[in-house]
Computed example of a mutant assay.
Amino acid sequence: MGENEVAVAEGVRLPQPRPDVVGAVVLNAEGRAFVQLRDADRRLFPNTWDVVSGHVEDDETPVAALAREVAEETGWRLRRIVRNLGSYRWPEQDGVEQTSVYFVVEVDGDLSRPVLEWDKHSRYAWVGTEDLDMLLENCTPDDTLIRDVVARALDVHRQPGGSAEQNSTSG
């Protein structure tokens, strides 16, 4: 999927320079965010909750990487980038610092039937504000990134012009 097929909402700032990692928060019509549990055998952040995310390859733009990750991790198609949730710097477990950027996105596909990469994620959930503490399971005390990103995305849904009502549930 090329980035020319992905709409970017007016006012959304795309990251410069290119980040190492991009992440997508998908909100459903009820304003709940899609998360998936990383498999216990993963090298980085095993058995912790995550949003759709992954590394930007050398030959990719952030938008192309986001579209690829959404398709690979859920089977859905990235339609529109709604909001930039911010950039974050974090050290990988091997000590190399990474920059990640997260977005609220709209997708096409059946939101009730994500196609997970079962060798990387053992389950998924749709979470609301009442579930945010669940996202801290198996995290170190100072690792609140995914919880914080999802909380920001849920706030977007409550603001005028939030994106969830536009996510497709066809299929």
Score class of each variant (00 low, 15 high):
residue 5 E to S: 15
residue 117 E to N: 15
residue 69 E to N: 07
residue 48 T to Q: 15
residue 28 N to A: 15
residue 156 V to R: 05
residue 88 Y to D: 03
residue 150 V to W: 12
residue 86 G to W: 05
residue 65 A to H: 03
residue 70 V to E: 02
residue 7 A to L: 11
residue 138 N to L: 02
residue 79 R to N: 09
residue 141 P to V: 05
residue 145 L to C: 02
residue 7 A to P: 00
residue 27 L to I: 15
residue 14 L to I: 08
residue 84 N to W: 03
residue 47 N to P: 06
residue 132 L to E: 06
residue 119 D to S: 13
residue 171 G to F: 01
residue 128 G to L: 12
residue 114 P to Q: 12
residue 76 W to D: 04
residue 51 V to H: 09
residue 133 D to Q: 05
residue 167 N to F: 00
residue 121 H to F: 15
residue 111 L to E: 04
residue 139 C to K: 14
residue 71 A to Q: 03
residue 76 W to H: 11
residue 80 R to T: 06
residue 125 A to R: 15
residue 64 A to E: 15
residue 128 G to Y: 10
residue 141 P to N: 09
residue 61 T to E: 11
residue 6 V to Q: 10
residue 20 D to K: 01
residue 57 E to T: 04
residue 35 V to F: 13
residue 12 V to H: 12
residue 68 R to S: 04
residue 56 V to R: 10
residue 136 L to D: 11
residue 112 S to K: 12
residue 3 E to D: 09
residue 81 I to A: 09
residue 64 A to W: 07
residue 67 A to F: 02
residue 64 A to P: 07
residue 88 Y to N: 05
residue 114 P to S: 13
residue 37 L to M: 15
residue 43 R to E: 14
residue 61 T to K: 08
residue 94 D to Y: 12
residue 93 Q to S: 08
residue 32 R to P: 08
residue 136 L to Q: 13
residue 156 V to H: 05
residue 126 W to T: 12
residue 6 V to M: 11
residue 49 W to G: 06
residue 69 E to T: 00
residue 133 D to R: 10
residue 136 L to V: 10
residue 157 H to D: 00
residue 110 D to R: 03
residue 25 V to Y: 11
residue 89 R to M: 01
residue 65 A to Y: 04
residue 89 R to P: 00
residue 2 G to H: 10
residue 57 E to K: 13
residue 86 G to Q: 04
residue 6 V to K: 07
residue 106 E to C: 13
residue 16 Q to A: 10
residue 145 L to S: 08
residue 76 W to N: 08
residue 61 T to V: 01
residue 162 G to D: 05
residue 131 D to Q: 08
residue 5 E to M: 15
residue 11 G to F: 12
residue 164 A to L: 01
residue 80 R to Y: 03
residue 3 E to L: 09
residue 146 I to T: 13
residue 34 F to D: 05
residue 59 D to S: 11
residue 145 L to E: 04
residue 145 L to F: 01
residue 96 V to L: 14
residue 99 T to F: 03
residue 43 R to V: 07
residue 127 V to I: 11
residue 133 D to T: 10
residue 80 R to V: 03
residue 170 S to Q: 04
residue 28 N to M: 15
residue 37 L to C: 07
residue 10 E to F: 10
residue 16 Q to F: 06
residue 78 L to Q: 12
residue 93 Q to C: 03
residue 53 S to K: 14
residue 88 Y to W: 05
residue 165 E to G: 10
residue 91 P to H: 06
residue 10 E to S: 15
residue 43 R to L: 14
residue 87 S to W: 02
residue 75 G to S: 01
residue 44 L to E: 11
residue 41 D to I: 05
residue 33 A to H: 15
residue 96 V to H: 08
residue 45 F to M: 04
residue 2 G to D: 09
residue 32 R to T: 15
residue 26 V to S: 14
residue 11 G to N: 14
residue 6 V to L: 11
residue 70 V to R: 08
residue 87 S to H: 03
residue 75 G to H: 05
residue 11 G to P: 04
residue 162 G to P: 02
residue 86 G to D: 01
residue 129 T to Y: 14
residue 120 K to I: 00
residue 88 Y to M: 00
residue 46 P to K: 09
residue 156 V to Y: 02
residue 125 A to W: 10
residue 116 L to A: 11
residue 160 P to I: 01
residue 49 W to N: 08
residue 19 P to V: 03
residue 152 R to M: 00
residue 142 D to L: 06
residue 74 T to V: 06
residue 120 K to Q: 10
residue 114 P to E: 11
residue 133 D to P: 00
residue 160 P to A: 10
